[in-house]
Amino acid sequence: MSKIVAITMGDPAGIGPEIIVKALQSDVLKNVHSVVIGSAELLNKQLDMGLFSNVSFNVIDKVSEANFSPNIINVIDTKLEDLNSLQPGKIQPQAGDLAYRCVKKATELALQGEVNAIATAPLNKEALHSAGHMFPGHTELLAKLTDSKDVAMVLYTDSLKVIHVTTHVSLRKFLDTLNCERIEKVIKIADDFLKKIGIKHPKIAVAGVNPHAGEHGLFGDEEIKIVAPAIEKMRQHGIDAIGPCAPDTVFLQAHQGKFDMVVAMYHDQGHIPLKLLGFYDGVNIAAGLPFIRTSADHGTAFDIAWQGVAKADSMIESIRLAELLS
């Protein structure tokens, strides 16, 4: 039986609708079975841009009604409160609410076994919050919806894979709350994830916190007191974890093949090198969920929303990986 990927629209005022339609017309995805969760009316408006041809929408109520013939996009309609008042590139509560409802529906389908994986288009955190859904992002929302306690964000390209100890918190809070237990959990999540995708003996580099990984305490002692003990404990559990590694070189070393994944301590430490190397085709994966969830590794791009110029490379890759890894 073919695997099915649920694709969530993300924030409808962003580029999500456009890159979904573009992605599903790519030859790369011609054999991938998918169902879009989103506003059918808004998706249909993408055809008005004149960029798409030979495609039609099959609006369905349940996955079993999907038609996986070529040039058919299956949509489980999730209606907007007022499509006519929706403005491209603007933070709006109804847009944040739709993004939330799409993820919630896709999660239900995945937990029920009706779809095998989820690929999410970008949502806007301010819009999400304005609708009363107080989550920092997709990873935290999905963790809540699935009651998953140990979840971490993975950024994925063919040549560099990064997992994060913390993501959407301030640097001050990160430093004040950094602890061995969380680092240990993320190293374990990294090892499990890499084995799940076929790497039998993962080699995991763990970045330090401070310049040159603290230089033996000269530039900070977090490596000595927190990071190194966590690494040693996981090595005792049979995980090949190396570090603390100097953050300014470890990502290049991983890119060159020395490591299978890097454990980054905080958001920008991991995001900057990954996005430099894979801004258009990098994929965000939530590791530790009961199913595979991938996402385009960029934001809602409000500045170019509904203009027909957005690149769909990362969305294509996220859908492809969702199907491949599930």
Score class of each variant (00 low, 15 high):
40 A>N: 09
78 T>Y: 11
124 N>D: 05
182 R>E: 12
286 A>L: 09
18 E>G: 12
52 F>Y: 14
281 D>L: 08
271 H>W: 09
282 G>S: 13
160 L>Y: 01
270 G>W: 03
141 L>E: 12
98 L>M: 06
161 K>F: 03
93 P>L: 05
71 N>I: 03
237 H>W: 08
151 V>K: 03
137 G>Q: 08
278 G>H: 04
300 T>M: 02
55 V>D: 02
244 P>R: 02
214 G>N: 10
204 I>H: 00
11 D>C: 08
16 G>D: 08
130 S>P: 05
205 A>E: 05
152 A>K: 03
181 E>F: 02
122 P>M: 08
38 G>Y: 07
312 A>K: 12
156 Y>P: 01
72 I>D: 00
223 E>S: 02
295 S>V: 03
182 R>K: 15
129 H>Q: 07
118 I>G: 09
326 S>A: 14
263 V>L: 02
187 I>M: 02
178 L>F: 06
51 L>P: 10
22 K>N: 11
178 L>D: 11
194 L>K: 06
175 L>Y: 12
61 D>W: 10
268 D>E: 11
18 E>Q: 11
264 A>L: 06
238 G>N: 09
23 A>L: 13
7 I>E: 06
150 D>E: 15
211 P>T: 01
118 I>S: 10
53 S>D: 15
135 F>A: 14
232 E>C: 11
20 I>F: 06
48 D>I: 02
9 M>I: 14
167 T>E: 07
273 P>C: 06
306 W>R: 04
32 V>I: 11
